[in-house]
Amino acid sequence: MELVIRHNGRDWVVEGDGLSLSAPTLEELDRKVGTTMREKGLIKEGEKTEVFMAFDNSTIPEWIRQYAQHYFNRILVVQG
């Protein structure tokens, strides 16, 4: 599963595959992602899934992008 993550100034936001969740900290966001996936049946009980989160670079001001084009990608392992 692949999602796009960005920051809106207050919250981290992940979107994609019909999901759109936000939370002020990554811990909370990860919990929300897990819960939502289980609720929506995107993951079966006892199963393990990797959620790949790619950072949306357009969060970063354009003038900075010429110096560095990558912020981070992360993988979250969700347990069903």
């Binding site: 990554l26 811990e27 990860d30 897990g34 990797e50 790949f52 084009q69 990558h70 981070f72 990608n73 992360r74 993988i75 979250l76 392992v77 969700v78 347990q79």
Partner: peptide, 13 residues
């Protein structure tokens, strides 16, 4: 954070 992993591809990116 539980369940988080750092992809090795970060080095290339």
């Amino acid at each position: 954070r539980p369940g988080e992993r750092v992809p090795a591809s970060e080095v290339w990116h």
